[in-house]
Design a binder for these strands. Structure first.
Length: 499
RNA sequence: GCGCCCUUCGUCUAUCGGUUAGGACGCCAGAUUUUCAAUCUGGAAAGACGGGUUCGACUCCCGUAGGGCGCGCCA
């Protein structure tokens, strides 16, 4: 099933089998991710990339990257950068250099010439107006809107002078085309519903369906994993492979991802670029886990490492129905990953994400070595209370707050006369502490509370309000320790000064 | 309109003819408690509908309904 030209260079073999050709290893798998650079890397594309990546990695193969930039009108360098950046953020690496499809146009034209020569393609002089009329007529007659084949067998002498023709593929009109899909199963499409598609535009530029076939073949792609929206293309491409005498790669058309409301993804809901997820404070490992679980399953497993993902991934674990994107579940997963990340690493992750988080740059501007250390020290108490890096950052705001703090509304309510009275006593108890350590502070406050006949919560809340300006925070003794004696007492004094 | 595909708790899913239909998120209740979380325990919650096939269907077949995708000189 492998074509001779793929993966056979010593370099490729070395890449696939770094340790030499292993006993028991079989087919060198080559997958590819082939986005068109007309926008950011959206969530569906990200999952397609993930599946391709997982499949290649789990089979000791490689994943290539091809930028389908043949639409010169809509392709942009910004989009290419955004896609590459998105993949890198997600931790999905590719083998070799990204291939520009447009750069291979000469090769595509060469194949078109061959198709022309073998009679598998022909010149079509139909005008835009005629094509529109054809579609409308077909629709009106209850037929699929397609090209009517009027130039299919027409004499070359009929060609209008001075008109550049488009080249069409001469598709079979009888019978049916079968796509033997790893996910969709055996899909049979009547050939009468597939028309003669244009493979070379009248301006001499190749079109998608032709380019894809040529590139996948030339690049030695063995497995094509992409969205089901390409299923009909798969049939057309199969016909081209056959006409060229090439082997058809294994195909797997994965279901689409829908928005939370079940509707198609649009800019309004869900169709965000992966950079938006980064800005929302999600961890790449959580994204990978969530995306993998969306449409693919391995029994009842929900949380698994990337290594496990690679080990377990298989095409037969992919379902056929579309899935809705569920932010609540993503958040939960992300929270799990944050809690599971050790404090040093999570601190680094937060620091590294600051440029992308909404309040990140201001926070970064207020950091110094001392506060960085405080952030790290507060991390255990912070991470249990956050599901995203955005929430983590929010929880850490008190560390860099400027004095005097401006408490939020609820915190201000805690600092009423009663609260301040309690605070005053607590301040005295704290300042009397010889050691500014958790145990000492806790026993001092507990003793004070008992003395004053108050429950601990009654003391902790005003303290929290004065110390953090919020009603929620990590454990109050941790807050005191992280802030330090001087800063803590100063913040308490700021609050008391308002009496 | 034509073609192809899909349909299990609200959501993501397990099941690959025989299960009290399982798990996860979310939700509800309880425990814990220094706020909020985290954590633990318990609970409610599903096979779209109608026909077949079979000793037996969520599982296989047909139909209906609903949904998705495709039908460009876009990719």
């Amino acid at each position: 099933m492998l074509h001779d030209c793929r993966s056979c260079s010593p370099r490729n073999l070395a890449r696939i089998f770094p340790g030499g050709f292993m006993a028991g290893s079989t087919i060198p798998v080559v997958t590819r991710f082939a986005p068109s650079p007309t926008g950011f890397l959206h969530i569906g594309g990200a999952r397609t990339a993930l599946f391709n990546w997982l499949y290649s990695r789990s089979n000791g193969g490689q994943m290539l990257l091809r930028i389908e930039d043949t639409d010169r009108e809509r392709s942009t360098q910004e989009a290419v950068d955004a896609i590459l950046d998105g993949l890198k953020w997600l931790g999905l690496d590719w083998d070799g250099e990204p291939v520009s499809q447009f750069a291979r146009a000469d090769r595509h034209r060469e194949v078109v010439e061959a198709l022309l020569a073998s009679g598998n393609a022909y010149r079509c002089y139909a005008t835009q107006e005629e094509l529109v009329a054809m579609r409308e007529k077909a629709m009106a007659e209850g037929r699929p809107p397609r090209y009517d084949g009027s130039w299919r067998d027409r004499d070359a002498a009929d060609a209008p002078a001075g008109v550049a023709p488009a080249i069409r593929f001469r598709a079979p009109q009888e019978g049916e085309t079968v796509v033997d899909d790893q996910v969709q199963g055996r899909v049979v499409i009547p050939n009468k519903d597939l028309d003669d598609l244009i493979i070379l535009r009248s301006d001499g530029n190749p079109t998608y369906n032709l380019s894809v076939v040529v590139d996948d073949h030339d690049m030695g792609v063995t497995h094509i994993v992409r969205g089901v929206d390409h299923l009909t293309n798969a049939a057309r491409q199969s016909q081209i492979y056959l006409a060229l005498g090439w082997d058809v790669p294994v195909m797997a058309h994965i279901p689409l991802i829908h928005g939370p409301d079940g509707a198609k993804l649009s800019k309004r809901h869900g169709a965000l670029g992966v950079e938006a997820y980064r800005a929302m404070g999600y961890l790449p490992e959580a994204m990978r886990n969530y995306l993998a679980r969306l449409g693919w399953s391995h029994g009842d497993d929900e949380i698994f490492s990337t290594e496990q993902m690679i080990e377990w991934f298989a095409l037969d674990g992919i379902g056929k129905s579309a899935a809705r994107f569920d932010f609540a579940k993503l958040e939960n997963l992300n929270g799990h990953y944050m809690r599971a990340t050790d404090d040093d690493a999570l601190t680094e992750a937060l620091l590294g994400a600051l440029p992308y988080l909404p309040a990140g740059p201001e926070f970064a501007a207020r950091l110094d070595d001392g506060r960085r250390a405080a952030l790290r020290q507060a991390m255990p108490g912070l991470k249990d209370r956050a599901k995203t890096l955005v929430e983590l950052l929010d929880g850490a705001q008190f560390l860099v707050a400027k004095r005097p703090l401006s408490p939020d509304e609820k915190a201000a309510q805690l600092l009423d006369n009663h609260g301040l009275e309690t605070l005053s006593g607590a301040r005295a108890a704290l300042s009397a502490c010889s050691q500014w350590a958790t145990e000492d502070l806790e026993s001092a406050i507990r003793a004070f509370a008992e003395e004053a006949g108050l429950k601990l919560g009654k003391v902790a809340q005003p303290l929290r309000a004065a110390l953090t300006g919020r009603t929620t925070s990590p454990g109050i003794f941790d807050v005191l320790v992280v802030l330090g004696r001087e800063e803590s007492l100063a913040r308490l004094d700021d609050a008391l000064a308002r009496m």
